[in-house]
Design a protein around this nucleic acid. Structure first.
Lengths: 186, 186
DNA sequence: TATAATATCCTAACATTATTAGGATGTCAA
DNA sequence: TTGACATCCTAATAATGTTAGGATATTATA
């Protein structure tokens, strides 16, 4: 049995590939082990079990999303930042739809890491929206507003609530622009 | 073996109870059969399998939600209707959080019924928002906007994105009122 | 009413899954 | 080189969804 350089991170990365290939519902430890050329029982050297694996996947996904959001926001001001973050958010969901579903599947109460990564996302939104006001209450409020729009839209779209007859991308652009107009009136 | 008056509907209703009791991830055909005093294999008389069961649960949940939304909107105008629908939406999620998660878990492409019930929900939103404009494009746009806010907010809250330090209910009220103000400017 | 057809439920078996226990074999440091 | 540890294994188990085939209750029909 030749040793390979497996560790928790590489296991989770491979799991992420499988998740995007076939949907997260069809991820099994057997398939994951096969892809890694080991036996299912050997996975327990690197992860505690499938529940922890999902937590780790959720955290990886949320982290990737936050990086893309941060990148998009960097150096941009107000509306431009909001449009760029929205575009990055959509891009992530388009590129990793199943990982995005896992983000929403795992309650943050299950993991300290998840809470921390969630805070990173909120911090990005906070920084962008703090360009509109100095009042923390309002910044939080508009962060929640904006975050709700983004998640709500992509999630409803993913589940199939939106009819393709009306263009999806245009709708979100219009919504974000509307939201921005509203902020300009603060 | 005494026959009981089981049918697909009663089986799904019982499944819904179990789903709310212990979370939808822990629903099994064994537990469902136990609650119904039959053996797991006998469930297949009433449902095709666990996948179909989830589709039926999603449809039941979405239907219940749509009824509450319709009830809330009935006889109300514009902002009042939007606030009432939002309250009803939240009430449903508070009362049946696990069923709400199932709504978002099952893609509508899996079932013609789901597409139909989804249309019922959209139709309610369409009717409410048609009080603000006669242009279908705009009605659709603002329906998506409003729907995204509602789903996004309750869903992010469910997953644990929102810090309890800032009051949750107040946030949504403020967001809805902001949205309404915006509509008044059309 | 008797009987045929059907529906409901059963037992038994199976494949798949996650998981644990305990053992073998690499890897690395003293 | 040897001992400690990490990695991976085999084997077994419990839980799950599912199917096949049979028994029994219900309903329709003659």
């Amino acid at each position: 049995m030749p040793r390979q350089g497996l560790n928790t991170e590489s296991v989770v990365k491979t799991a992420a590939l499988l998740v995007e290939e076939n949907g997260y519902e069809s991820l099994t430890l057997h398939k994951l082990a096969s892809k890694l050329n080991i036996k299912p029982a050997s996975l327990y050297t690197h992860i505690q079990g499938i529940d922890e694996l999902y937590v780790l996947l959720a955290n990886m996904a949320l982290n990737q999303l936050s990086i893309m959001m941060l990148d998009a926001a960097k150096g941009k001001k107000r509306g431009d930042a909001l449009r760029a973050v929205a575009a990055a958010y959509c891009e992530y969901v388009k590129q990793s739809p199943e990982m995005y579903r896992i983000i929403m599947k795992i309650p943050h109460s299950h993991s300290e890491d998840l809470i921390k990564t969630g805070r990173a996302v909120k911090s990005i939104l906070f920084d962008v929206l703090s360009q509109y006001t100095k009042e923390d209450d309002k910044i939080i409020l508009y962060s929640r507003y904006y975050h709700s729009i983004l998640h709500g839209f992509v999630s409803l779209n993913q589940t199939g609530f939106f009819d393709d007859a009306f263009p999806i991308d245009t709708s979100l652009s219009n919504i974000i622009n509307n939201f921005i107009e509203q902020l300009e009136r603060i």
